[in-house]
Computed example of a mutant assay.
Amino acid sequence: MNATAPRRIWLCADDYGLSDGVNRAIRELIERGRLNATSVMTVTSAIGREAVAALQASMAKSPRCAIGLHVTLTAPFRPLTLHFRPLDGDMFLPFPKLLRGGMLRRLDAELVHAEVLAQLDAFRELFGRAPDFVDGHQHAQLFPQVRDGFLRAVKERAPDAWVRQGGRNAPLSQRLAAPKALVLDTLSAQFRKKAAKLGLRFNPAFAGAYDFTRAPDFGALMRGFLEGLPEDGLVMCHPGFVDETLTALDPLTTQRETEHAYLASDDFPALLALNKVTLS
């Protein structure tokens, strides 16, 4: 590649299908060329034929935009399969309990496998094709035992899709300064090995994790995310407009509007140009 050519990266908006406000914000940014990927939840009430048709119409205006499946295995959502366990009432476990269950080897990879197959089938039913990539809500695809069932299901139903790992391309000092991202680095090491063994492709590097509760300057964060990100590296984002459904389902609310405002601003394409990065 020419040394002066821009790096092409993936900027992926998670959670399409979470709420109408999230859906609308993601579609708007796709139409403006400010995103080139989004991942879709199939277990939520805000996904259906109308939401899918609207997304496809937006993607027609940005034909290089990829669409993936956002596998969802944590509360407050419910499984598509009847026999998924363990549950919290009739819902998936909260993600700390799911992670702990995997670390203690208390999960059943076969039940995870069946649920991911069901979500992949639901995606195909909605879109008429397999997803371009597959990732996971709250990074659950990286958890021990979960990753075994997840990767095997992708290999069976969507072998040409790539899967998302959460490891960064950053110096050790930078990784140690961000505890959340360091956990993702650690979990991703085994995920990459298992994906490679199955012949599944994955993104070479990942960025986008931060402490949502501190409402930081998203523009400053984005500058850090782009630093050192290689060709085909992925930045995760969560743009959205707050509505009642979002407030009821997810603690990440107003920061989604902050992310949307920055990505929709003139500052964002200027930052891409300054860093010789492209989404096209």
Rank of each mutant, 00 (worst) to 15 (best):
L226R: 10
M222Q: 07
H139E: 07
V277C: 14
R214Y: 05
L187R: 10
A181C: 04
L279H: 08
T42W: 00
A248K: 10
R214F: 02
L35N: 06
Q138C: 05
V22I: 04
G33L: 02
A264K: 13
D217Y: 11
V235W: 08
F95Q: 12
L176G: 09
V183L: 15
A158Q: 11
R32T: 05
Q174R: 15
L200N: 01
R168F: 08
K276F: 10
Q119I: 01
G128Y: 11
R201S: 13
L18F: 04
F143N: 02
A51S: 14
A109S: 05
N169I: 03
L120K: 03
L172M: 14
R256K: 10
P269D: 09
F212P: 08
F143L: 04
K194H: 04
I30G: 06
E115C: 00
M41Y: 07
N2T: 13
A75C: 04
G128Q: 09
F206Y: 15
Y16V: 12
T245C: 07
P131L: 07
L104A: 07
L274V: 11
P79Y: 03
F202M: 04
L55W: 11
A130R: 11
R85V: 02
R152S: 13
R64Y: 12
G166I: 02
A170D: 07
H137T: 02
F206V: 04
L87N: 07
R32C: 08
P63V: 08
L11G: 11
L82M: 06
K155E: 14
P171W: 09
R64T: 12
S45G: 01
T258D: 12
A181H: 09
Y16R: 14
M59I: 15
Q119M: 06
D132G: 11
R147F: 06
L107E: 00
A177G: 13
R49N: 06
A261P: 02
V277G: 13
L87C: 02
L249Q: 11
A51I: 07
K180F: 11
T253F: 05
V52R: 14
D217G: 13
Q165K: 06
K197W: 00
R85T: 08
H238Y: 08
L187K: 04
L249G: 06
R214N: 11
K194D: 13
L111N: 00
G102Q: 01
A13C: 12
D121I: 01
T245F: 00
V277W: 15
E257W: 08
P96F: 06
V116G: 00
V134Y: 06
F241K: 10
M236G: 06
H139P: 03
T81C: 10
Y16D: 12
L182H: 11
A114I: 00
A261Y: 04
A248W: 01
V116K: 01
G166L: 03
W10N: 03
L176I: 15
A140V: 14
A158I: 10
V40I: 15
F123Y: 14
D20I: 10
R32A: 14
A195G: 01
R157M: 08
D148V: 05
A109M: 00
